[in-house]
Amino acid sequence: MKGINRSKLINFFVILAVILLLIFFNLRGLLVAPKDIVFFVANPFLKLFGALDKGIFGTWNFFVALKDLNIENANLKNENAALLNEVTNLKESARENESLRQQLGVAGIKNQKLVMAEVAGYNPVLGQYFLIDKGRNDGLYINMAVVAAGDFFVGRVVEVNDNFSKALLISDSNSSVNTITMESRVAGVVKGNHGLGIVMEMIPIDAQIKIGETVLTSGLNDGIPKDLIVGKITDIVKKENEIFQSATVVPFVDFKSLEQVFVLIR
């Protein structure tokens, strides 16, 4: 081959053969230990950079947020007043619900076990994945739901090693979760939009959904329980001659600033 000497060509094929061998080993599950070792070695550096990131970008974000503080404060006060009213009503409903359950002899919803995990890294280059520092040894399995504090759905576990795992964010284009709107009870599928946001699709064109409605998981996906909060509808897109409408959904959590998440153990 012109421009490449023999030794370089041999090097190329030798390393290519090594890579193919490693891929084969991975398919046979023989790379779990090396992966865990790499994670064990890299974890202190990941934590160090994480602390640096928190310091630098945290301070920067604080100063950026300062200018909008007054408006945000006023909005939060209004929202707080509305929520207080809602909480009072919900408490009343909860009491009635509990009383009815007792009368009918129906057991309450069983609480799921949670495993708290630190977000060890985030890799948007190859899709919207993030690494968490819990793995098979902590009881994690593929397809388990990952939530942020407050039952906000974040994604699901897609790869598990002994001591760390990879979770696919709901904002990834390959993510697809069955959902339902909280008030109008309209079902749809929430999909990621290249990591830029999430969209609820497959909503029948005649369904009446509202802007501001909360979207919840419907529990139809394996490993993802129902009633996890996905986000809030901010826009509805209806096109003529189409049988489905779609809605832009804004998550309640900023995925990039997540530090801890919880994995729902079955």
Partner: peptide, 21 residues
């Protein structure tokens, strides 16, 4: 190599534009 991996996983996502880091 480990430092580069840590940089890629922690700091590079902060420089993402339109989700591309």
């Amino acid at each position: 190599s480990i430092l580069a991996v840590a940089l890629q996983l922690i700091l590079m996502p902060r420089l993402a534009i339109l989700g591309i880091a």
